[in-house]
Each structure stands twice: as C-alpha cells, then as structure tokens.
Design a protein around this nucleic acid. Sequence first.
DNA 1: CCACATTACTTGCAAAACGCAAGTGAAAAA
DNA 2: TTTTTCACTTGCGTTTTGCAAGTAATGTGG
Lengths: 143, 143
Amino acid sequence: MRKLTAGEKRRSGCPLNASVEILGDRWSLLIIRDMMLRGFRTYKEFLGSYEQIATNILADRLRNLEKHGIIATEEDPSDGRKVNYVLTKKGIDLAPVLTEMVLWAGGHEKTENQALVQLMRKDKEAFLAEIRARWENGSGKKK
Amino acid sequence: MRKLTAGEKRRSGCPLNASVEILGDRWSLLIIRDMMLRGFRTYKEFLGSYEQIATNILADRLRNLEKHGIIATEEDPSDGRKVNYVLTKKGIDLAPVLTEMVLWAGGHEKTENQALVQLMRKDKEAFLAEIRARWENGSGKKK
DNA sequence: CCACATTACTTGCAAAACGCAAGTGAAAAA
DNA sequence: TTTTTCACTTGCGTTTTGCAAGTAATGTGG
C-alpha cells in the first residue's frame, strides 16, 4: 500500500473514492484494458488503439499509472528507443473491475465484442484465472 | 438498451469504453454509492456527503445518470419541493462494479471503512444479494 | 396570512484539464 | 550518413470543473 505523497489529499477515506480518484477518467482504464487483454506494451501501440488518445494525454496517464504503482516501465533490451510498460500485481488486480464494467455495459448498452461479453459471462472465474496466469509468468502474452 | 441520441458518438464499440464514457469521472460512481449503500435519495443528501460535490456538478451528474437510465426521479408525495432519486435496474446492476472497485482500493490503497471491505471480501455474493433484495422491494432502505 | 426557512436547482466567472497540431531528441535502419 | 522510428514535450484554444452567489417554488411557525 503506497503512502500519499506530499501534495496529495483524498477527498475522503472511502475505498470507492480512492478508486475513482485514481482511475476515474476517460482513458486510464482503456490503457489497462489494452495491456491486460491485448498485450500492448509500448507507447506506440497505445496510440494505435481504436479510441485515439492524444499523445500528451497518453504520456500523462502512463506517468500517473506508474506513480500509483499500477504499471511499471522496463527498458527494451534489444531496442534502446522503446519503453515497455507492464502491469504490476496491483494492475493485474484490476481485472475483476474491468470484467464487471464490461459485463455491465455489455448487458445494458449497445456494444460490439459480444464474444468477449459472452466469454466473461459464461465463466467469469475461468476468464480471470487465465488473465492472472498469463501475467504470472511475466509476459502478459497469450500462449 | 438505449439508443444513442443524435449528437452522441462513441469513440469505439468496446463495452469497457461505453462504461468509461458514461461513468468515467470523479463523481458519478460516488452518487451511485450514496444511493446504493447509504439509501440517499435527495439532492440535499448528496450535497451533504463527505466528498463535498459542488451544486452545479451534482445537478449535471444527476441529469446525466438519468439520461442514461441509471437513475430515475420521483416526486415526493408529502413534500412538493423534494425530488427523490432512485436507482433503476440498470443502476442496481452497477453493484458488482462498485464492489470490485471497493475491494481493489481496500486491498491496495490506504483507506477507511475496512469493515465494508471485509464484509465484501468475506462473502461477495451474499453482499450483492442483499443489495439487490433491498432494491427489489422498492425502497432501497435497510430493513 | 405573512415572514422566514427549506429544497433544488441556475448563473457567472476563474482555474484546471483536455485535446489537437507541431516540434524535439535519442536510437535504429537504410 | 541520411532517414525513419520511437517516445515523448510544447503551445494554444476549447471544454470541464469548481466556487460563490442568486433564484423560484414549496413548506412551516407565529
């Protein structure tokens, strides 16, 4: 559990408020999604995602997620220009949050990717177990 | 499932993106929390909540939640000044999302109300069933 | 019945966040 | 060695947020 750094003050001690202060914007969870579900790791990959985040916002969000210990950076051993972003344990633990948000919208809004929704709905625990397994062995990539 | 009204365009069809576009701000989920967990129903009660939302933001967020069919308004039979806000089925269905966000922050951030976190952790399904039951019989209030 | 209180807002304005377009510097590729 | 790629930063206009104050409708006490 990280401490709050100097300037930070929470509006309240409520756990939901903490989540909302850290993740409550239009981009942070989409970045997590791209890492968790699509195996994205680089700035360029995030920029290529369908929702078209702006470059400065992406840089800001990555900084923020790292500051909160949700992602970490690694330098690419084979390419000095690249920065690889990876989920930490804290980041992987957001899988149930993402899942419930997908299920909620999948059931109440007109959305695509109903295949994913069906998969999650059919066996939520198996789905979560697979994500955890993928990240436990380092890569975050599908086998 | 509601249709998108004229001016609205989703950045993508991803269900997570839909959730984030509807609920991804610093206040909407706190309002849902106050309704779901504390039985709040009026503008004044929301204003009195610990996080101190501004009056114009509250009005805007309530409008938005109603527009998305997450809450509904009822006029108070005994007091013509009051407007009672209640969760719809779609709103109640956000309970798992709230729960997972509470559990995540409860486990990874320094927060208060660990009693709630423990309760959710110990038997998540029972907790969700109780919330649904409370709202099924109309009131949303604890017995 | 009349003054005052309460409820649910709206309005105005300053500050912060967001988003687009363009630019930069370091490393790799041609 | 020139060009391309990658991960950003900077400038600037627009939108959102947040504070303070105001308003209209309804209810209450004397």
